[in-house]
Write a protein that binds this DNA or RNA. Structure first.
Lengths: 253, 253
DNA sequence: GCTGTGTCTTGATCCGGATCAAGGCGACGG
DNA sequence: CCGTCGCCTTGATCCGGATCAAGACACAGC
């Protein structure tokens, strides 16, 4: 089973949400926040955005937010915790498609097939905002900022998908992965130099198309080279510039 | 430079377009056709779809439809010919992101960054419909079917991006690639068993994260196993079921 | 005709990372 | 307390595909 082996985990239940807000405000870290800001908080349409949102959770580590084949009815914004999405082929082999941090959105790849093409699994205790997609589409028709925001989120995810497309060395992959996580944490207002890796080495390796042993070796080497400090899943980037030098081929090509 | 080494190429200029239509009809093979059908051909809004379209081309093999960094103003539907999209890192290494056949759309990954994150290069003589994106967005706000279609196209491309995510053998990759192309040709009304490979072995290999030599060897082996007939870039699938058996791990996991 | 160029194919060798194997460590349950 | 179970780390070996190399072929230009 999934586990949370470390004693000192983030104290999520006490303060799970950066800014849950009142009736007219939205989570400050949320991917939709800029849509709200662009449209203005007080327009009546935004009240509808509140109406079509449903807070769901908590999900414990290992629990599914949705499963492959589930009919698509909503997208989910992560309010707290971390999620992996994955596909499992008929031989039972898992392929991790991505990790999603607070403020990021899962389920966009289900619009076209109308059924979720992958599983979403909580890596730690996680909370979500559930947006009914039909309601969201209807709102998008009336509020250009919401439509534009959906287009942008979809397009953005296209870009990240092509990030790990190339064939790169294990060092490049791991360095780029750590920097990517760091940047995403920083973009949401968290520390971009010290953070907790919510995923196991195995998930990380699977996502990066490496063996878990290789990831472990690379991390050990990076530590020996004073590029990072890492103990279990607690990570600190000691030399982001050095990592950038290693991983640059994968970043903003 | 790019070349078209084979003498007997498709006679594109004579009949480049499957169904170019009149004022109220659209290319039958076009990715937008279902949006038009869903909305009905005769609604006045669809006349606007005609207005915001501009036919561009021809582009000769090797010419750029857009370049990395160009400001994003429009998306392009392929009317005839084939396109590759690619990123080139600062060391000059190329990474092919995808190939686009008639009826498919390029440029969706530029919405978020607002600049094209990649080059689009014609692989043979190619023609396009250019859709102004601001106009398209405005139309999408008024015609739900257009909005929905854009969402679906974006979401669909997310799915294909995760197709080549896993780590698979060279045989699996090549088999899945050939079947993918076959399926896309068939979906547009072309033959799904005999078609021309517009891309070089090098581009194919680059896209599949293999060496060109490996692709060449795999194709030779598939030919020896009577799975395919291939001569230069002319391909026939002799045993699609056999290929499916090899590539199934990559197809609709 | 000859020559240069780019593409494709095939063979020989090499290497990065996968795989196999073993051991450490912390958490948990008896 | 000990035993089990995951997860992580490190070492030893192996292999698929990259790389190096050479040659075939078609075509364009002179």
């Amino acid at each position: 089973m999934q586990s949370k082996p470390l004693a000192g985990r983030l104290p999520e239940p006490p303060s799970p949400i950066a800014d849950d807000g009142d009736e007219t405000h939205f989570c400050g870290t949320c991917a939709f926040s800029s849509a709200c800001i662009a449209a203005g908080y007080h327009k009546p349409e935004l009240a509808e955005l509140q109406c079509l949102v449903e807070h769901v959770g908590p999900f414990r580590a290992g629990e599914h937010i949705f499963r492959t084949g589930d009919p698509f009815r909503a997208i989910f914004a992560v309010r707290a915790g971390t999620v992996k999405t994955r596909m499992v082929d008929k031989e039972g082999r898992e392929q991790v498609l991505g990790f999603y941090l607070p403020g990021e959105v899962i389920g966009l790849n289900a619009i076209y097939p109308e059924h979720f093409p992958c599983d979403a699994v909580a890596l730690d205790t996680a909370y979500f905002c559930r947006f009914s997609f039909p309601a969201m589409s209807a709102l998008a028709s009336r509020v250009p900022a919401v439509q534009q925001h959906l287009f942008r989120m979809l397009s953005k995810e296209l870009g990240t998908a092509s990030l790990l497309a190339g064939d790169h060395s294990a060092d490049e992959r791991v360095a780029a992965f750590l920097l990517d996580l760091a940047g995403r944490y920083a973009a949401r207002g968290f520390s971009g130099t010290r953070f907790h890796l919510s995923m196991s080495r195995g998930d990380m390796a699977n996502y990066l198309r490496l063996a878990a042993e290789t990831v472990s070796r690379v991390l050990s080497r990076f530590r020996a080279q004073k590029l990072i400090a890492i103990e279990g899943r607690e990570l600190e980037l000691l030399d982001p510039a050095g990592l950038r030098g290693i991983g640059q081929a994968l970043l903003r090509d």
